[in-house]
Design a protein around this nucleic acid. Structure first.
Lengths: 329, 329
DNA sequence: CATTTACGAGAACGGATGTTCACCGCATGG
DNA sequence: CCATGCGGTGAACATCCGTTCTCGTAAATG
């Protein structure tokens, strides 16, 4: 776009010389609102980059506590907001930071189903890494809501990193165990799943089994939900449901999934759970306690709740939640 | 200071996560004003760095025009403001950018008398360059107003660049020609002046001969001023006055100066004039036309005026000034 | 040609930010 | 012991900024 030039000029006048939007508008013959928009675009597109030369971390203490309680490798915590949308954005940023730290220049990253993981792509600003690949770790053709299926997420992350993306041409949940088996026997599917199983890094969401606790659970029918809960399911990672001990929940749903099994997932060395919200706490807690995942990206409230449940075993009455929940207006 | 940590945390919450000052205050138990101040400090101290990834330059056309009209090597232009203080800051920033581009990693930079040059130091953020040296090109003990004498300016620039600074232990203007000669015979003075004469880069202000047109002119007595003007003086560079053709103005004042001569100055390969304001236009114009300096840092209004005077020779009636003067409230 | 739709622009509003001012606690010195 | 001043604090005010809403234009469509 020809406005790149203009964005740069406006950005210099504002951020370097401290001119107000109005002043810049007067100087360049633009309306103030136009200048505001140019600046917003310049920030979004990365023309304006704000770097913080400090290792300070607002949630260092919480992160350390989570690492300690669950024996994790690393934890990223974003602030919580009253509006879920803002929290999603912040968790997405934290996830982008996590990827910046963990993603190698070559190798494979497996990507699981998650609305939170989907929020990451928008915040990635990385140099192209042509030797890197993103692989969905479960099928994509399911009825999952707009743009949130593993394939699309992998695609967006891949393009954000300038990396290759692989496709798993199958529904995440087939209509029957037989259909699922048929898909699994497809050479393309097998190839992608093998690639996913050999990934260095896994990044996925964690869903719960209560209504509205995940993308997947709401897609299932009543009877399927009942069956899962009866089997002890407390959550899922990319459609693989697990019980309170982190063991796979066998049954119809599990047989219909086209994607890596829990055992396969767990064999990936670096496994990041990206998830937040009160509905997710139980599933997340199980995931971490059982070692299904060994890193987390979440928000401060969820982190506090996780610490509280873990502390519950040892220090039942302590509740530090209020420290990280912002007071209302 | 221990608040570095806090500045970093606050900066992250604001610039990365988009939290409001109020929200950050609530979260960390600080007042909103305190957060505002922490952020301002973080920006000033360079913890927060805003980079603009664009070669766009708001005044590219004006700069090109000046380069062409006067045959200069390079020009830096800052925006003009109704308040002189803001313009000074902006010109200081432009000067810092100029130095970032021109200062070598080793060698010597000669520093002349100038309030504008003094404004540069605050905006320099450079890696330490221990093999670099800053040398005042004229004496420092004069009655020049607070902190604006060459030595102090060289000192501040030197510390901003993490470089060495040299001292010229003499007044910029001695009380008599004989005293000046005595100072010049001092070995320390000779050593520093020799070093200055061999500099790679010169950065200095340009003063005028009207009242309030420079730091120096107002320090001189009435009779001295009259004598200078009678000799045809239109401006000075670090106390060396020159006439309309750029030739040194001989006389009492010139003999009392302890510092490099105009010929010596002109032998330095890279010579940057830092100066702005309507009072300075004539002196600047002469400086550039005569080739005393071959680069300029100034503001948009002054630049426009310079272009207009140069254009006057060829295109008498054109006046583009309004294009760069901001409309009032 | 008339209608619809999409897009971009600026007016207006409400919240966010930066600055000024009065105050307070603490140190220094009479 | 009280004056004096200095560094730091939050309240209040004055801009400044971002968003929403409405309007007008232009392209696409019937």
């Amino acid at each position: 776009m020809e406005s790149r030039e203009l964005q740069g000029r406006v950005a210099r006048l504002h951020y370097q010389h401290g001119m107000t939007h109005q002043e810049i508008g007067d100087l360049l013959g633009l309306s103030r609102v136009k200048v505001t928009r140019l600046l917003a675009d310049a920030r979004r597109s990365g023309i304006v980059e704000i770097t913080i030369h400090s290792s300070a971390n607002p949630f260092a203490d919480l992160e350390a506590e989570l690492v300690g309680r669950f024996g994790l490798q690393q934890v990223w915590i974003a602030p919580s907001f009253p509006e879920e949308r803002r929290t999603t954005e912040s968790v997405g940023m934290a996830g982008a930071e996590c990827l910046r730290a963990l993603v190698p220049t070559s190798g494979t990253v497996a990507v699981g189903l998650s609305s939170s993981v989907a929020a990451i792509a928008a915040h990635v600003h990385a140099d192209p890494a042509p030797d890197l690949g993103f692989v969905p770790l479960a099928g994509s053709w399911g009825g999952i809501s707009r743009g949130m299926n593993p394939h699309e997420v992998a695609l967006r992350l891949g393009s954000a990193f300038g990396a290759r993306t692989y496709h798993l041409p199958a529904p995440i949940l087939a209509s029957s165990p037989d259909t699922a088996a048929a898909f699994r026997s497809d050479p393309g599917v097998q190839e992608t799943m093998r690639r996913a199983a050999e990934a260095d890094l896994l990044i996925a969401g964690v869903g719960g089994t209560e209504p509205r606790a995940g993308l997947l659970i709401d897609e299932l029918g009543r009877s399927e939900q009942r069956q899962l809960v009866a089997g002890g399911a407390v959550g899922d990672i990319s459609a693989r449901f697990f019980d309170d001990a982190g063991r796979a929940v066998a049954g119809d749903v599990d047989e219909r999934v086209v994607g890596l099994s829990l055992d396969q997932l767990s064999a990936i060395p670096h496994r990041v759970a990206v998830s937040f919200g009160p509905h997710k706490v139980r599933a997340l807690e199980t995931t971490l306690r059982a070692g299904l995942m060994n890193m987390v990206v979440t928000d401060a409230e969820t982190a506090t709740a996780l610490v509280a449940t873990a502390a519950g075993d040892r220090r039942p009455s302590e509740n530090r939640e209020s420290q990280y929940r912002r007071s209302g207006a």
